[in-house]
C-alpha cells in the first residue's frame, strides 16, 4: 500500500478542524510560500487599514473615539494607516513583478492567461455562475471549478479593483496639494466617497461573503486553512477544484508519469502549522465579524 494514501484524522478520530485536511488521499500543494505570505500580508495590512479608517469614517459612532484613542489619536492613526498602505502597495508591486516574471518564463503563456489555471475572468466563469444558480434550484449539477473558482477570481479581481480605487483615491487624499495642482478640488470630495465606499464594500464583502464561501459553509465549517498551510487532501482538492485535479490526473495516467501528482504531493501539515493557521484564521474571522458589527452599529448614527 502506498504511503501517500492516508486517512487523515486527528485526536480521537473526529473530523479535522481544517476542511482542507478532511477526506482521504495524499496532501496536494495548492499555494506556495509566496502565495501564502502575500495573502498573510494582505490580511495584516487590510485589517490595519480598515481598523484605522473605520473610526474616521464613522466618527459619530460610539466606538470611534475609544478606537482612535487605542491608535493614539487621529494623527497617529493616520500615520499607521498610511504605513499600512505603503506596505500594501509594496507587496502588490512585488506580486506584480512575480506574476510578470512567471508569465515571461512560462512556456505555455496561453494556458496561464486563458486556460483553466488562470486567475483572470473567463466566459467559463459566467457559465459556472449560472450553473451554480441552477444547482441551487435543483436544475443541474454543481459547477466543476478549475484551479480558481469564479468566487476566488472575484476576490482577486475585487482586490485589483479595490487596490486601484482605494489606492488611487487614498494617494489623492494623502497629497491634496500635489493633486490639487491639476485637479479640480471637488475631485477630493469624489475621492473621499470612492475611498470610503469601496473600503466598506471590500470589508463587507470579505468579512461576510468571502468568509462564508471559504470557511463558514456548512460543508467546510468552521475553517479552511488551505491558504495558511498551503495544502489540502486529494479529496478536498477534488471537491473544490475538480477540473484542476482532472488535469493532474490525466497527466498521471500516462505511463511515463505519475510525476504530476507526485510533484504536487505535500507532507501533511504539522500540528503546529495547523494550530497557527487556526489561531490566525479564527482571529481574523473574529475581528472581521466585529468590524461588520461596528459598521452596522455605526449605520444607526
Amino acid at each position: 500500500m502506498s504511503n501517500h494514501i492516508v486517512h487523515h484524522e486527528y485526536g480521537d478520530g473526529g473530523v479535522p478542524l481544517d476542511a482542507a485536511q478532511r477526506g482521504r488521499g495524499p496532501f496536494i500543494w495548492r499555494f506556495n510560500l509566496f502565495h501564502r505570505l502575500t495573502h498573510g500580508f494582505a490580511i495584516i495590512s487590510f485589517y490595519t487599514l480598515i481598523l484605522t479608517g473605520i473610526p474616521l469614517r464613522f466618527a459619530c459612532a460610539p466606538f470611534a473615539e475609544p478606537l482612535m484613542r487605542f491608535w493614539g489619536g487621529v494623527e497617529q492613526a493616520g500615520l499607521i494607516h498610511r504605513t499600512a498602505a505603503v506596505f500594501m502597495v509594496t507587496y502588490t508591486f512585488v506580486h506584480i513583478v512575480y506574476m510578470t516574471v512567471k508569465l515571461v518564463r512560462t512556456r505555455d503563456k496561453r494556458r496561464m492567461l486563458w486556460g483553466s489555471d488562470s486567475l483572470l475572468p473567463h466566459p467559463q466563469d459566467a457559465r459556472d455562475f449560472l450553473q451554480q444558480w441552477k444547482w441551487y434550484f435543483g436544475k443541474g449539477e454543481r459547477p466543476r471549478f478549475g484551479r480558481y473558482s469564479y468566487l476566488e477570481k472575484m476576490d482577486y479581481m475585487g482586490e485589483v479593483w479595490g487596490f486601484v480605487i482605494i489606492g488611487g483615491s487614498g494617494f489623492m487624499l494623502w497629497f491634496p496639494e500635489f493633486f490639487g495642482r491639476w485637479m479640480p478640488g471637488w475631485m477630493f470630495n469624489v475621492a473621499t466617497i470612492f475611498h470610503a465606499y469601496e473600503a466598506m464594500l471590500a470589508a463587507a464583502f470579505l468579512f461576510t461573503i468571502h468568509f462564508f464561501n471559504v470557511h463558514l459553509r456548512p460543508d467546510k465549517f468552521p475553517l479552511d486553512a488551505v491558504m495558511f498551510t498551503g495544502r489540502g487532501t486529494l479529496d478536498y482538492m477534488e471537491e473544490e477544484h475538480p477540473v484542476m485535479m482532472d488535469q493532474i490526473e490525466a497527466v498521471a495516467h500516462e505511463p511515463v508519469s505519475h510525476k504530476a501528482i507526485a510533484d504536487r504531493r505535500a507532507p501533511p501539515p504539522t500540528r503546529t502549522q495547523t494550530m497557527v493557521a487556526a489561531i490566525f484564521g479564527f482571529a481574523a474571522w473574529g475581528v472581521g465579524l466585529a468590524t461588520i458589527g461596528m459598521i452596522l452599529w455605526a449605520a444607526l448614527c
Binding site: 491634496p176 490639487g180 491639476w182 479640480p184 478640488g185
Partner: peptide, 11 residues
Amino acid sequence: HPYARPAFVLY
C-alpha cells in the same frame, strides 16, 4: 494647504 490654487479651492 500652501499650494492651494484656483482649481484646488473648488473643493
